[in-house]
Design a protein around this nucleic acid. Sequence first.
RNA 1: GGACGCGUAGCUCAGUGGUAGAGCACUGUGUUGACAUCGCAGGGGUCGCAGGUUCAAUCCCUGCCGCGUCCACCA
Length: 934
Amino acid sequence: MIDRIFDPASFEQTIYARWEREGAFRPARPDAKPFTIVIPPPNVTGSLHIGHALDNTLQDILIRWHRLNGRDARWVVGTDHAGIATQMVVERRLAEAQQPGRTAMGRDAFVAKVWEWKEESGGTITGQLRRLGASCDWAGERFTMDEGFNKAVLKVFVTLYNQGLLYRDKRLVNWDPKLKTAISDLEVETREVAGTFTHIRYPLADGALLDSGADHIIVATTRPETMLGDTAVAVNADDPRYASVIGKHVLLPITGRRIPIIADEHADPELGSGAVKITPAHDFNDWAVYERNKAIGYINILDAEASICAADGVPAAYVGLTREDARKRVVADLEAAGLIERIEQKTIQMPYGDRSGVVIEPWLTDQWYVNAAELAKDAIAAVQDGRTQFVPKTWEKTYFNWMENIQPWCVSRQLWWGHRIPAWQGPSMTLLEFGVPFDDRKQSDPPIFVAETEEDALKQAKAFYQANLEQKFEIAVSVDPVNPYTLRDKKLEIGLARDEDVLDTWFSSALWPFGTLGWPEQTTDLARHYPGDVLVTGFDIIFFWVARMMMQGLHFMGPERSDPKDRVPFHTVYCHGLVRDAKGQKMSKTKGNTVDPLILIDKYGADALRFTLTAMETQGRDIKLSESRIEGYRNFATKLWNAARFTQMNGIAGSTSPLPPAAAQPVNRWIIGEIKTTARALEQAIADLRFDAYADAIYRLVWSRFCDWYLELIKPLFAEGADEAVAAETRAVAGWALDQILVMLHPVMPFLTEELWHQLAIRDDLILAAWVATDALPEDAAASADIDWLIGLISEIRSARTEVNVPPSARLAFAVEGASPQTAARLAANAPALERLARIAPGETAAGGRLQLVHHEATFLIPLGDVIDLAAERTRLDKALAAAIKERDALAGRLSNPGFTEKAKPEAVEKAREDHDARSAEAQRLAAALGRLG
RNA sequence: GGACGCGUAGCUCAGUGGUAGAGCACUGUGUUGACAUCGCAGGGGUCGCAGGUUCAAUCCCUGCCGCGUCCACCA
């Protein structure tokens, strides 16, 4: 017996366990067409937030729907090692536990700690996905740092290197001085902060003067401390103010260095003084100036923590100051020297690290870069020609815009947690004292050997050095005098030192769609499940992840697939919005406005949360989540629960066939048609990826059709004394209809539907079995018309009763005037329903006060005797008449307009005529009723 | 500066070239057993503003206003 109380917590976890036990989520239909989704891998040590809940609910709906529809569905699941995030968590935990820090314990010990933490907390999020009901293929669970995945990463790195698409370069990177690692452009966020704009006078050297007579050039900066590293002042060649001093020098204050005045396009005469200080080592634009004017050189003045380091011209007193302290000191010293023109307070934009939250420093280092522009070509083409489609389509523009302007992707990170870069460095030739002339390569950097294994790297090294040396060589220490970061004092016992760095987490995530399936091995999984059908993700990681999967997927799977359509990692990218709080604020831990999906699940059930997110998921719009909405959908679940309870109490059981039982009763034929209509709408919603439409259609069917009308209308059909055959038919149809509802609702509310599926009948199979047999369902327009008529009549009677203040409990008689034979037949057939739902029964039409109700061609007369509220009845009829006349006249106006009758579609004209006539007749009947009212 | 999205009932949002919809909230009410986590009934909107296209515009086009997001840049 279905329990009186709907308590999702009492069955959700049991049901999930059963699904897993029975292997319900494993692909098990080798002959069927596969349907594949790869999960956006959550951080292995993370926990489920509301964005995950949305993302995974949508994926689960698609997976479950296609599984119901006979596809061999596979939801590839796993977790991401999340380099920076995870390393930061473990470091914080060590600090909290007052244990030795990362550097104190050393690399191996630290990495071991991270693995420990991964083992300890790695099950959290996968457990939470289970709570949500996600039907992932857990048997195939992967991790971005598992052995197989690591192989894929190494293979990709080496291949790209050998193809010249991945290289080492010395250039400015976004340096995070807190985490002490390079980060990519995408990991930098610009924030507006209050700042200052300092205008500084740079005295001209050698007595030179500007045409204006000034003996100095004014430059402005938001970062005065960087002047210590200036190597030039740039002016525009076309700027007459400075034409006479191009090629001359200024005396750089504080440092006493003479730096040249150069002409460069970077200087914009319109901005500021038209002259700009050039600090190549600490500003991206200035580095570009340097590349055009190499003679000016560059000077690095910052160490890895962004403190001032020893450098040419930097006074000893500055060394070791933080950039903030150095800024104050520079300003003070310039002030003392009378070189400050003025200082403006101003809102300035500063780059911040998205993880560390500190100001990012452009810093000169050696890093590994991927030639993203080259890889982007195929990735752009694949979206242009529709092999991969974004939904909503508007995101394609965003994708193209980014891809077409893509910069080299910095993939090395100075972290310890991640895929270590498979590159080995040999001794620098310039530091070797062999006394043997090298060939003309004049290589000054140490040679680098990239290979999947150390053995391969060694082989390469031997081949390389033997080609250049005839005798023994010794191992030296590599020292980069310019860039302290590359100071790597290593004991090179075998002559090679592996690169200390690890790869950007997104470098491995980019391989997810094929790395999870066994690549580089040619597995059957890979053949079957690449490409995926749909990728479901937030728009915020289109750049980070989607674009990179496109690039890597096409590059590595492309050559292996003959059909261009099979080269992309997925055919569709569904981008959903952000889940915001009820006020529309972005949720964040610091704001404290996050909602924990697990708490919501505990409170309302996973199904209610899922339904809410589904119903609110409209394409191209963020979700403002409010708890009252979840409550509403929990009520919906309760409603269905109770409806099932009702059927069970009335001897209605689950059906045995997806095909509907034979039905003669209009109400039964009608509900079969309603099921068919809804199933079609749901099929369309899935095809369009319209999740809100899916929720809406099933909600209406369950509540507004099945519960509100069908169950109410059939109650008399199996009441005591009812016809046995009719009762039997009705029970059969009702059971079947409820089954179809459970199936259709299952993708969104899997727990509840599975629970009821088994409560309603003894069945061996899970509800995952089969979708509605839509095509086989009959439609019966006549039955639908009958029931629509009945529903309309009951609604009108109820409304009229309320308006004239008839007590709900009053049972009334009615007579009918002008009824067609069809109406008479309908009235006879539905007498019990009218009795129950409208509380009217055929009777005498006594003269005097009576309610007059126009429904289609018939006027219903309902005597109320003295109790009728005549004024209310008059108001009601007046209102109805006014409405009918208004519409009639509007239609008449349209029909008398030749523009309409000649140009509008014939169907539209015909429809307008019919409506006009109907309204006109209705108005006449209402007028007559008013007349009789006196 | 470039691109995009959004302005529809008190709130959150669907929607359509021809009578404007839902949920929640609100008002009134409760006919005895599926359900008060409910039923029934009701009030509430010049569909941001101004033009244009059209027989007809909430819907298509243009401009404006307001809100938001992304990218780039500001020495």
